Simulated assay, not measured.
Amino acid sequence: MSEKSFFRAEHISAGYGKKTVLHDISFSLKAHTLTALVGANGCGKTTLMKCIANQLNHGGKCVLEGEFLEELSVKELARKVSYIPQKSGIMISLPVLDVVLMGFNPVLKLMQRPSKEQEERAKDALVQIGLGGYENIEYLTLSEGQKQLVFLARTMIEDTSLLLLDEPDSALDLQNRHQIMKQLKEMTREGERAGLLCLHDPNLALRFCDQLILMKDGRCMEVLHPSENSLEEMEQAFQKIYGDVSLAECTDKKNRRHLTVLWEESV
């Protein structure tokens, strides 16, 4: 399997009832890369995520390392794809460590408990995301930002090929947003995997992602590669979905290049 065809979404269309939300979307992901779905509210980003995770009926196919995801069982899919929605759905009282250990469920047998080694891996993941010592804290008592970090720790221990995260930064402060993005970028560099994120902040996408898929009205408007596309090309692409915006280039103290989207405001 070549790197170019690690994952492909082919002609994805979907909707709710009689309303069509996604219109014939196709794109591909390379291994070892992080890709952002970018666009305004209601453009179809979350719906597309649900299709790829096979949680919503859809037209078209999703192909991961040569396998059609639509043909896999729930457990087989969970072994290959990590999907973290906007809300965890956990409504019962559980210790933080137990929530992280759920990441091992696809490889455990019925009623089998995680091993000591797996528990240590879960604890190490909590340390890496800054929640060391939270193992016995009740998950439901955490802030929304801390809950997102717990699910990042769960994702870290899952040995899957495709990471799907819907707005993983939404409840985080500036420092933790950058922390979670750096961690995800590192995760996609290790092993044979790719990451796909829904992001509202285009600046975060430009800073950390290898590829940006710009969406509007349920359609893929542009696919950008910040390391390859010119500033003018990317600015024109962003104007298709955000209107009167411009892109600026700057450097940090270490002389690294960064791109920033600037919104024009009427006086």
Rank of each mutant, 00 (worst) to 15 (best):
T155Y: 00
N203S: 05
A171K: 10
K45E: 10
S227D: 15
I137P: 05
E138T: 11
E65V: 08
T47W: 09
K18G: 05
T260K: 09
P114H: 01
L29I: 07
E265G: 15
E67S: 10
K116E: 15
L212H: 04
Q146N: 07
K109N: 15
K19A: 13
C51M: 09
Q55A: 06
A78D: 02
Q112I: 00
C198D: 06
V223N: 05
E264K: 15
L77N: 04
S88Y: 01
L197T: 13
E264Y: 15
F7W: 04
L64Y: 08
P114K: 03
L97T: 03
E249G: 04
L259C: 10
D24K: 06
E167R: 00
M102A: 01
C62N: 11
D244F: 10
I90Q: 09
S13V: 06
D244Y: 11
F238P: 07
A153S: 11
Q128V: 07
G44H: 01
L196H: 02
Q175K: 14
E65D: 13
E158A: 08
K4C: 05
D24R: 06
Y242K: 04
L37A: 09
S115I: 00
H58E: 11
N229T: 11
L206A: 05
K185Q: 12
F6L: 04
A122F: 13
G89A: 09
L199F: 03
D124L: 12
L37C: 11
A9L: 05
K116Q: 14
K87L: 06
D217L: 14
C209W: 00
S143L: 10
E67T: 07
Q128N: 14
A171R: 08
R257A: 09
S227H: 14
Q55I: 01
I84K: 00
K45Y: 02
R219F: 06
D159K: 12
L231P: 02
C43A: 10
G66N: 09
L108S: 10
A36E: 00
L108H: 13
W263L: 11
I241E: 03
L72Y: 02
A78K: 01
E144C: 12
H258Q: 09
S2Q: 12
T160P: 03
V223A: 12
A14M: 12
S73R: 06
L126I: 14
L204A: 09
V74M: 05
M49F: 08
V74P: 03
T251K: 14
G243S: 07
S28R: 11
L142S: 11
H32N: 15
G243P: 09
M156R: 01
S82Q: 04
A36D: 01
K185L: 07
C62L: 04
L34K: 06
L22N: 08
Q86H: 06
Y139T: 02
D173K: 13
L172A: 03
A78V: 04
N176S: 10
S115Q: 06
S88L: 03
L69Y: 05
H225T: 15
Q148V: 06
T141H: 11
D159E: 15
F68C: 12
L34H: 08
K109L: 14
N255R: 12
L108Q: 12
D166W: 00
C220S: 12
D169L: 07
E158I: 02
F68Y: 13
S26Q: 01
I137M: 15
I25F: 04
S5I: 08
A205R: 00
